[in-house]
């Protein structure tokens, strides 16, 4: 109990979130969201130059199917920044982002969109 009281500010800060997710998990999360919207928004699929299997294509193209994957260019921070429009329905991937949010992701972040369209340089 005494230890809890001593560390309560830290507990309060971390109570709502866990540890940092690895780059591969972040990349896969973006892939899942993009592919959810690509199914409903034809423009997204065209801009990402997708074939039939969206997730398999993007994972292979970006290399983030590998757990050891790490962002280089764009950086992790840049990807997280551009990912924010895709979170308008929440952190969970149960609900796909809207076409507007997906289009914003592609138009406002051409470098990150290029990474998912062309893969790691």
């Amino acid at each position: 109990m005494r230890r809890l009281i001593r560390w309560w500010p830290l507990i309060c800060l971390t109570a709502c979130s866990g540890p940092d997710a690895p780059d591969a998990a972040v990349c896969r999360d973006v892939v899942v969201r993009l592919c959810q919207s690509a199914g409903a928004c034809p423009g997204v699929a065209v801009q990402l130059d997708l074939e039939l299997s969206c997730e398999a294509t993007l994972l292979q193209r970006t290399g983030c199917e590998d757990d050891a994957f790490a962002f280089a260019s764009p950086t992790r921070e840049r990807v997280l920044e551009c990912r924010e429009p895709l979170l308008s329905w929440g952190m969970s991937t149960d609900h796909p982002p809207t076409c507007v949010d997906a289009t914003r992701f592609l138009t406002e972040c051409p470098d990150v969109a290029g990474f998912f369209r062309e893969g790691q340089p």
Partner: peptide, 15 residues
């Protein structure tokens, strides 16, 4: 940690 969700800062959900 809750691995089914990643927040804006790239963190997993709290355990």
């Amino acid at each position: 940690p809750n691995r089914s969700a990643i927040d804006e800062q790239g963190r997993y959900g709290a355990s």
